[in-house]
């Protein structure tokens, strides 16, 4: 492989990651729509779409392995390969969490806790992923720090939502709610909140790897 072709492959690698991130963000957006609208059709699109995300992930992994094996990248080029490899794993996990969310959307019979605003939490998490991906595309170190800063707000939203659920769990839910129904609703909502919190964590990982890629700075990796 010539140096010219090698550099073209590095560019292609980054473009592949951005294309994968488009799919992941779209999946998460749809999962949120499905969750809020309890729309089984949109939810099934998310579940079916996860296969393509996984294929893209494996293609990126293969390209990274080949570049490492055949070109032994160093310095900034090595950081691009390593960061992209790690970020693809985080994106793949966000895709899985979007699938989980879509699955929860069509389980159960009702919105058990309308006072828990999962949509807002989800949109916050989605925005973090989008901003982290944009930082990767432009190698914007400041934007990486901004994503990491936003995670605190997401954690607070998730904490507050958990508090509502726990409070209601301890309170009397009324004669219509069987213990089984109550537990199913509570568990599902806990999982939803936990998964959205994890989306934020993955977004921070994206930002941390991007900062490392752009500047060799591992501030956000700790």
């Amino acid at each position: 492989m010539s140096r010219f072709e090698y550099r073209a492959q590095l560019r292609a690698l980054r473009e592949e990651l951005l294309a994968m991130s488009d799919l992941v963000c779209e999946a998460l957006q749809r999962a949120l729509e499905a969750f809020e609208a309890r729309d089984a059709e949109i939810a099934s699109l998310v579940v079916e779409g996860d296969r393509e995300i996984n294929e893209r992930y494996l293609a990126i992994e293969r390209r990274c392995i080949e570049l490492i094996a055949r070109q032994q990248p160093v310095a900034g080029e090595m950081r691009v390969v390593v960061a992209t490899f790690k970020i693809s794993t985080d994106l793949e996990r966000v895709g899985d969490l979007a699938t989980n969310l879509a699955t929860y959307a069509i389980q159960g019979e009702r919105h058990a806790y309308p006072e828990v605003d999962a949509g807002t939490i989800g949109r916050h998490a989605l925005a973090m992923v989008r901003e982290a991906v944009a930082a990767y595309a432009t190698e914007d170190a400041e934007a990486c720090y901004a994503v990491a800063d936003r995670d605190e707000a997401l954690d607070r939203l998730c904490e507050a939502a958990n508090g509502i659920v726990v409070h209601d769990l301890l309170a009397d839910r009324g004669p219509d709610d069987s213990v089984e129904t109550l537990l199913a609703d509570v568990s599902r909502l806990f999982l939803t909140i936990r998964d959205l919190e994890r989306v934020g964590d993955h977004a921070v990982n994206l930002a941390a790897r991007t900062l490392y890629m752009a500047e060799g700075n591992d501030d956000l990796l700790a």
Binding site: A75, M78, G216
Partner: peptide
């Protein structure tokens, strides 16, 4: 040197 050299010419 091979991960993050300080000098652009070295990179």
């Amino acid at each position: 040197i091979f991960e993050n050299p300080a000098n652009q010419a070295v990179e």
